[in-house]
Design a protein around this nucleic acid. Structure first.
Lengths: 200, 200
DNA sequence: CTCGAAAGGTACGCGTCTGTATCTAACGCA
DNA sequence: TGCGTTAGATACAGACGCGTACCTTTCGAG
């Protein structure tokens, strides 16, 4: 419970300390959102003092960005050999992942977006490797290679629809999205749009 | 610029004052989000003092809920005689309306949701008249009556998809949604899902 | 072993918001 | 016209976070 490193324990330095602080920062962010994301709280959680944080990250932005960057990881794209299972599996990963949590938490970042005039979209673009195909672009491309889908142009909106809808559900409920909703998104919306006949 | 009612001007009372305060509260909420939504700020904006607010709304929740309730209004559903134009028109209204703004601002309410353990979905359900059909349910029903759509069961997810996607875009960009995106949502996603052949 | 770099602790002044108490001044009804 | 109600102003203590200054303690490189 108490992560403090008061007298008696060995003193952390360099990257050891740095990692511990970012861990603590992430915890604070997840638990209390951007509003509770203060130097005070992070320092206390990390068992260190505010000056240590200020030396490394003079501005709140710096600390926040460093924290997000440290915990940002792309969501795993499954390779099941089936368009439907790829899609459902990916949405499940997105929902379960820490990366999913960040989307959830991103809502908590509204204050940050407001302060800085940026948006969740811009943050995502800043953190995502640019120019890379999205998960669903890959999923669709592989389905085309397998011959599961015809090789025809598709709008980015349609291709990426499932993740948008998942994110929307997360925003609205602030909860993990039930599996039934994921299946619904894929079976009732996405696959029909791609021209895949319903299996029912 | 200065809404203050200092000495010299007439003193407001009762519902006059109440309305003025809620106006001010709304402005503050829109401009500074939930984080800046303080008794201090609202009182200053309304040109009154904090005790006056505390007398009416002892808790921050009370003031917030009263403010939201006062400015919540259903989005107008156009009647153009065309499914497509109804949909596009409604989405435009939703984007432009104060009610659209509240959705945008709802993101700013993340702190509130966090504090209270509620979510945007629950807030919407609390503010919306319960049991009423949604806008898109009405739009679809009217299209069925006109014979523009066959009378067959449709999942609520599909029917209400356009507003979800609009909201998602608002969340992601924190900006007004461009008309092109609205048209895209309707023409590339919704109408095809409803089985309406593309006009292009 | 020495010494410099950096962690950890403490304290300060500042600003903002909270919730309440107290006073006065204006309003509106009888 | 008089009086009760309530708006409006001000002040207060307390909490919290900020950003910085300063000192002590520990670490680790040489």
């Amino acid at each position: 419970m108490d992560r403090k490193q008061k007298s008696g324990a060995s003193r952390r330095r360099g990257s050891t300390l740095q990692d511990a602080i970012l861990d603590a920062a992430w915890d604070v962010l997840v638990e209390h959102g951007y509003h509770g994301f203060t130097y005070e709280a992070v320092a206390a959680r990390a068992g260190t003092s505010r000056p240590v944080l200020y030396r490394r990250w003079p501005r709140r932005d710096d600390l926040l960005l460093a924290t997000l960057a440290a915990f940002w990881q792309p969501i795993a794209v499954p390779e099941t050999g089936s368009l439907r299972d790829d899609a459902i599996g990916f949405l499940r990963n997105a929902d379960a992942d820490r990366a999913g949590m960040i989307t959830l938490q991103s809502v908590q970042l509204a204050g940050y977006f407001h302060d800085t005039g940026t948006s969740l979209g811009e943050l995502r673009d800043a953190l995502l490797p640019p120019g890379l195909p999205t998960a669903f672009e890959m999923i669709v491309a592989r389905a085309v290679e397998r011959g599961e889908l015809p090789d025809e142009p598709r709008s980015s909106r349609v291709v990426n629809l499932p993740l948008d809808l998942l994110r929307h559900d997360m925003f609205m409920t602030m909860r993990s999205v039930p599996h039934a909703s994921i299946v619904e998104i894929v079976d009732e919306v996405w696959l029909p749009l791609l021209g895949v006949p319903s299996s029912g």
